[in-house]
């Protein structure tokens, strides 16, 4: 795996990577990007660039994650002196810092109160709104978090991040239809995100009661995710699960009877096609597992846990093609 750097950290940071990132703190903290010369000279000789501050911010998150609160405090002070106390982003970072340091629900509650105060002064601060939702979530007040998110989305309905979060919350509560709706909104903002397609497919798959309609939606979304990224492990994994569930439904004679009464809006799936898709998913998963195990170049980027899960799925199936 490539060395993670602070400027462009990976989207999901494993604990070991986070530790490696936060250990880069001392050299960065020992050199100051703002030059100490008096005003006109400081303009000419500063080594500061936009990247400097991106690095600082990422280091801040890594430090908080690994419990290096002292470094985090230093970075926060530095960012505050550079960008001022009232910068929206700085306010949010300070909030994150306080949240991370809160030891019990009572302290978290205090952070929450401070967010309320900030929002009263400036209702347009969306990062603080999001932090507020995060605090509600960690306090376990899911229903309040949902309400807060719906208010946020009422005011800013193009925020894919917030929609995805709301979808998650609904899914936790088992409100599948609402969760699907939220993920559809995410898709409307980012129509080619295969992860969003896979997520919506998962939701369709998990929907209870599961009908042929939801399953075929799930299958199609997984299919679209694979179409967009043809080495997407999660897509193939899901495709295999869904097809295995659909095949008996399609084979049974009552499915044909049911079909017309259902509020199905999509053309029905053909049994033949689904079977072929199942074979395709199996062979693809087997290939990924095999290539990953042999450590071939270009195949090692998969998450190990996902590959193990895929191998288990194949083993359970009995048809091991390794």
């Amino acid at each position: 795996m490539a060395q993670a750097n602070l400027l462009t950290p990976p989207s999901t940071i494993s604990p070991s990577t986070a530790l490696a990132l936060s250990q880069k703190a001392p050299p960065i903290l020992s050199s100051t990007p703002i030059s100490s010369l008096p005003w006109p000279l400081s303009l000419l000789f500063s080594r500061e660039s936009p990247e400097t501050w991106t690095i600082h911010e990422n280091l801040f998150f890594a430090a908080l994650r690994t419990g290096d609160d002292k470094s985090a405090r230093q970075i926060l002070t530095r960012l505050t002196t550079r960008f001022g106390d009232t910068n929206e982003r700085i306010i949010a970072l300070r909030g994150i810092y306080e949240e991370a340091l809160a030891k019990n629900p009572g302290e978290l509650e205090k952070v929450f109160q401070s967010y309320e105060k900030i929002l009263k002064e400036d209702p347009t601060n969306f990062s603080i709104r999001k932090r507020r939702v995060a605090v509600l979530k960690s306090l376990g007040r899911t229903a309040d978090a949902v309400t807060a998110l719906t208010v946020l989305l009422e005011n800013s309905p193009t925020d894919a991040e917030a929609w995805a979060e709301l979808g998650d919350l609904y899914a936790q509560q088992g409100a599948w239809a609402q969760a699907v709706y939220c993920l559809e909104e995410v898709l409307l903002v980012t129509p080619n995100a295969w992860s969003a397609h896979a997520q919506i497919a998962t939701l369709h798959y998990l929907t209870v009661p599961s009908t042929l309609t939801t399953l075929s939606h799930s299958l199609r979304h997984f299919g679209r995710a694979i179409e967009l990224n043809d080495s997407y492990l999660r897509g193939f994994y899901g495709l295999k699960l869904v097809t295995k569930k659909i095949i008996p439904l399609l084979s049974s004679p009552e499915s044909k009877r049911n079909h017309n009464t259902d509020d199905d809006d999509s053309p029905p799936l053909k049994l033949e096609t689904v079977k072929k898709l199942e074979e395709l998913a199996t062979s693809k998963l087997a290939e990924i597992v095999r290539q990953y195990a042999s450590g071939k170049k270009g195949w090692t980027g998969y998450d190990e846990a996902e590959v193990i899960a895929a191998r288990e799925l194949l083993d359970r199936d009995g048809k091991v093609e390794r």
Binding site: R220, H221, G223, R224, E227, S266, P267, T273, L277
Partner: peptide
């Protein structure tokens, strides 16, 4: 766009 995606995939 999801209509017929299964055939496209195959």
């Amino acid at each position: 766009i999801l209509e017929g995606v299964e055939d496209r995939l195959l």
